[in-house]
Write a protein that binds this DNA or RNA. Structure first.
Lengths: 341, 341
DNA sequence: CTGAAAGCGCTAACAG
DNA sequence: CTGTTAGCGCTTTCAG
C-alpha cells in the first residue's frame, strides 16, 4: 500500500505538493497537479484517513444515533442520511441506542467522544439533560430529527398541525364521531409525538365545536398489530362504533383497516380511516394519509451539520424547524353514510 | 480536550504506562493502573482514535455494505450487526450500495480502501468479479450474508432446503396443487435467492412424484403488494385456483393472504399459504413460515470477522455456511378441503 | 508556486 | 514493571 512519499517520488515533487494537489487546498500549478494525480492513480494511492485526521482534527464521519433501526420510519431516515452523506464525501457511523442505560452511556461517553465523528445526528432521541450536555460539550455540530431537543437544532413535521389536518379532513367530510387511535401518551419516548398528535386532534375537534371525552382517544401499540387489536375491540361493539378513525400512524391505520375488514365493516363506506406518515403500504390499502418524508428529513439534517462543518459560523435555526407534511387523499375516507331512511 | 500527556503527568507516570494501563496491553502494576484510570477519568480523557489507528493500523471500524436499508430483512441484519459490534467495542460504518455504477465504484474504490475499516460485511451483495477482487485485495476480513460469494466466506440459510421444507409441509398435509409465488428469477440480484427457492420447491414436488409446469410458478415483486397483485390474478380465476400457495417470502405470502381475503377465499380452509422469513407481521396473519433470523446472521458474520481480527490465522469456513431455518406452523396451513360429497 | 521541517497524539520496541 | 525513544503518514506553516 503506497504512501504519499511514493507518489511524491514518482511525480518528482515533494510530499507537501502532493498533499496540496490531491486535497485541493493551496496553490499548485495545473501541470504539476496533473502529474501528481496521475502518479497517485497509477499507484492506487489513497490518503490514510487516520494520518490525515490526526493532523487536521477532522474525520469526515458523521455519527447517527437512533433508537430503532428495524422500522420503516427509522430506516427511511437512515437511508436519507446515508445518501446525503455519501454524496458529500462523508461516512456514516451508526449507533443504535437501545433502552439499556449501560449501552446508552457507553455511546454517549465513549463512542461519540472518541474523536471519531465530526458531527452527530440524533434521531427521535429522548435524552436526559446530562446526555444533552455531553452532546453539546463535544462542541460538534448536532442536529436532531423528530422533535424539539433542549438547546439542539431539530427538525420534524409539525405533529400538531399534521394531526389537526387529518382530523379536519374528516370533519370536512362531515364526520362528527371520530375516534383517535394513537400511541400511548405515557410512553415518553419519541419526543412526545403521541401527545402532540393527540393535541392536534383535540384542537380540531374543539375548533369544530365537537366535544370529546376519554372514550375519544384509545392508546395502541404503534404498529400494525397494535392498531389491529385496538380496532378489533372498538369496532366489535356496534354501539361504540364511530364513523371515522384517525390513527396516529399509517401502521396503526392499516391495523385498523384490517380489523374492520375482518369484522365486515366496509372502508370507507361504513368507516373512514386516516393515518399519518406516508408509509409505502398505505397505497395498497388505499389509505388516506398525511405524508411526511423521513428520508428527506434525514437529508436536511445532513445539510445542516455539513454546512456547519464547512462554513464555520453558520448556524441552523436554533430551535425547532418543521418541514411540510401533505395530505394525500386516497380512498379510505369518505363522507359518513347517512342513516338509511 | 486533554491528551495522554496530561494523564501521565497527573498520574505521575510516563505516557507509555498510561497507554498500557488504559489499553490493557502489557504489564502494569495494579496500583499504577488504578492511579492512571483515576487520572484519566478525572480529566475525561479518551484516546484519539486517529492517533491510535495511525500507529496500530487498526481502526476498530467495520464496514457494512448493503443494497437496501428500508426493508425488514435488511434492517434486521443491520440491527444484529450493530448489536454484536458495539458489544465488542467496534463501530459500524454503513454503506448503502445502490445500483448506480458510479456510487458502487466510489464505495469499492474509495471508501472501503481509505484505511477506514478493519473488516467488511457484505450483505446480499451481487458483485462483479472485479469488485470481489477489490474486496479481497484489501487483505481485510470479509464476510458475506445472503449467499455464496466467490472466494469470500458467506453465510445464509439454505434457501433450497428451506423452500423444500415449506413445500414438503404442504405436501404432507395432502396438498397436490401447490403454486409457487416467488421472486423474478431473471432479476439477478440477491444471490439467486429466487432461483434457489424455486429449486427447492421443484425438488420437493419431484420427490413426491408431482408434475409441475410453467403455470406452477409465478413471479411477483418481492413485497406485500407484489404478492397481492399476483394472487389477485391467480385466485380470481376459480379454475386455476390451487389448494395451496408457497410464497417465497413472508411479505409475498401476506400479500397473497390479503388478496384471498378480498376474494372471499378462506385461509386455510380454502387455501393454505406458507412463506419464508419469520417476518414480524407473520404472527398477526397467522402465517405459517420458515423462520430465518437475519439479525442472528448479522451477529454471526460479526463473530467471524472479529475473530479473524483478534486471532490472526483463524479463518472461517471458506466457502458457504448455512444456518438453520425452522418451520413455524401457525394457522395459515391445513389439509386441503375434501371435495364436498 | 514549491520544498523543508515540525509536529498531530499515540504505541511499540527496547532497555532498564 | 516502567521510562525512553522513535516513528505511524499526513498537513501545514514558513521560507524560498
Amino acid at each position: 500500500m503506497s504512501g504519499i512519499e511514493d507518489v511524491a517520488r514518482l511525480a518528482g515533487v515533494s510530499k507537501a505538493t502532493v498533499s496540496r494537489a490531491l486535497s485541493g487546498r493551496g496553490y499548485v500549478a495545473p501541470p504539476t497537479r496533473l502529474r501528481v494525480s496521475e502518479a497517485a492513480a497509477s499507484l492506487g494511492y489513497v490518503v490514510s484517513s487516520s494520518a490525515s485526521s490526526l493532523v487536521t482534527g477532522r474525520t469526515s464521519n458523521v455519527g447517527v444515533i437512533i433508537p430503532v433501526i428495524n422500522q420503516w420510519f427509522f430506516s427511511s431516515i437512515i437511508e436519507g442520511v446515508e445518501r446525503a452523506l455519501v454524496e458529500r464525501g462523508y461516512d456514516l457511523m451508526l449507533y443504535n441506542l437501545t433502552k439499556t442505560h449501560e449501552e446508552r452511556s457507553r455511546v454517549f461517553e465513549y463512542y461519540l467522544v472518541r474523536k471519531r465523528v465530526d458531527a452527530v445526528i440524533a434521531v427521535t432521541l429522548e435524552i436526559t439533560p446530562e446526555e444533552a450536555e455531553t452532546l453539546l460539550a463535544l462542541g460538534k455540530p448536532i442536529a436532531g430529527i423528530g422533535g424539539p431537543l433542549e438547546g439542539i437544532p431539530t427538525l420534524s413535521i409539525d405533529d400538531v398541525a399534521a394531526s389537526r389536518l387529518a382530523t379536519e379532513h374528516l370533519l370536512l367530510l362531515g364526520h362528527r364521531d371520530i375516534v383517535h387511535v394513537g400511541g400511548d401518551v405515557d410512553e415518553q419516548m419519541d419526543f412526545h409525538v403521541h401527545s402532540k398528535r393527540l393535541k392536534g386532534y383535540m384542537e380540531a375537534l374543539t375548533a369544530a365545536g365537537i366535544a370529546y371525552d376519554e372514550t375519544s382517544y384509545i392508546a395502541a401499540r404503534f404498529d400494525i398489530p397494535g392498531g389491529y387489536s385496538v380496532a378489533k375491540q372498538l369496532l366489535g361493539d356496534p354501539r361504540r362504533r364511530p364513523t371515522a378513525i384517525f390513527a396516529a400512524s399509517d401502521e396503526v391505520a392499516i391495523g385498523v383497516i384490517l380489523a374492520a375488514r375482518e369484522l365486515g365493516i366496509s372502508v370507507p363506506d361504513d368507516l373512514s380511516v386516516i393515518g399519518i406518515d406516508g408509509h409505502p403500504l398505505a397505497e395498497m390499502f388505499g389509505l388516506t394519509t398525511v405524508v411526511q418524508r423521513p428520508d428527506l428529513q434525514g437529508e436536511q439534517a445532513v445539510d445542516w451539520v455539513i454546512r456547519q462543518l464547512e462554513q464555520p459560523g453558520w448556524t441552523p435555526p436554533v430551535h425547532h424547524t418543521t418541514v411540510p407534511a401533505n395530505l394525500l387523499i386516497r380512498s379510505s375516507t369518505a363522507p359518513p353514510r347517512r342513516p338509511t331512511p
